[in-house]
Amino acid sequence: MSRARKPDWLKMRPPSGRRFTEIKQVLRDHDLHTVCEEANCPNLGECWSGREGPGTATIMLMGDRCSRGCNFCDVKTGGMEPLDPDEPANVASAIAEIGLEYVVLTSVDRDDLPDQGAGHFARTIEEIKTHHPETVVEVLVPDFRGESDCVEKIIDAEPDVIAHNIETVERLQWPVRDRRAGYEQSLSVLEQVSETSDIHTKTSLMLGIGEYDHEIYQTMGDLREIGVDIVTFGQYLQPSRSHLEVSEHVHPDKFSTWQQIAHEEFGFLYCASGPLVRSSYRAGELFVEAVLREGKSVEAARRTAGVDAE
């Protein structure tokens, strides 16, 4: 079956420019992977070019192979390799060389490891905080099978933002995600962070995979009930014919409506919503920087990130 033709609003410019080349080379020199490349992020050129500042990158820890096989994800599965003990230091060194003021750390799932990689994640955060305390650190973590001691290791490392993606509405979790993931399990991770720390929490949903409006409402309500601060909505794009098919290309106006609802009806501190928005998205990072680094109000920070204050 042929893939659905993309509408004009999903057309992307290929990444290019001196800054893009510099960041790519530094990451290669330090033997680091990024989810930007591994998952074919449509915003790679925008983030790496630094058009909104010094540039940003989402560094993927613990290799480029995942122990799970989600039906939406383009990251390779299986063939797990030992952790690189030098990776935390290499990440901190690359951040200094690139000059990142905001870094996002994510990872593959590592169900093969005793602590599922939580300790390695924490060491990387600590390395950055020790050598580059001015850098804002956001982490996009796996669900760690809902094991609270693993989540606690991340909290104790004190990143500025802890994100975990719920990905989709409750009904579609298992057609979309690996069977080892789940709606309640993901909620439990976010709830632990919000209940036991002052760290900002964040999550993301893909649209266009068969969800109904009332299910999106329900998901936003569930997220706010456990104290999630930031949510992003983006269009699911099928990486290959072997992945989950796109059900609908959601119009940009609908994304704008969801953003308004997230702010006005549910009271999220911030919502980035658009066809090409991804969990690690430059506008969301500008918002967090404005709140944490510059001490701006939520309303002023929204303006900084390109969203009119309500």
Rank of each mutant, 00 (worst) to 15 (best):
A89Y: 04
T168C: 12
L237F: 09
E152S: 13
T232M: 02
A89M: 05
E299K: 07
R224Q: 13
T130A: 14
E184M: 06
M220A: 06
L32P: 04
D74W: 00
K76A: 15
E215W: 04
K296D: 11
F266M: 02
V246M: 07
E289A: 10
I226H: 13
P252Y: 06
R123G: 09
E285N: 14
N165H: 05
C73H: 03
E184K: 10
H263Y: 10
S247N: 07
D74V: 01
L100E: 00
S240N: 11
G69F: 00
L223Q: 07
G234K: 04
N90Q: 13
F20H: 11
P133L: 07
G50Q: 05
G50D: 07
I216M: 06
R177M: 05
D111T: 15
I95N: 03
I128G: 04
I216Q: 06
R241A: 13
E245T: 13
N90S: 12
L61H: 14
I98T: 12
S242T: 14
V169L: 04
R28P: 00
H200M: 11
P275H: 04
P252E: 14
A96Y: 03
H131T: 14
R303F: 02
A94R: 09
T201Y: 02
L286R: 14
R18S: 14
E170Y: 00
P85S: 10
C36A: 13
R5E: 04
F287Y: 15
A305Y: 09
P88G: 05
E127T: 12
V91H: 01
G221E: 15
P142Q: 02
S240I: 03
L205E: 08
H249W: 13
R303K: 07
V139E: 10
E191M: 08
A272T: 12
D156M: 01
K11E: 15
H120L: 10
I199Y: 02
V151L: 08
F287N: 04
E310R: 09
L140W: 02
L10G: 11
S240G: 13
K24R: 12
V139M: 05
G146D: 12
E211F: 12
N43L: 08
I261Y: 11
E310N: 09
E245S: 12
Y270P: 00
I230K: 00
L44D: 03
I199E: 03
H131K: 13
D149G: 02
I261C: 06
R28F: 06
G53E: 03
D198P: 01
E52A: 12
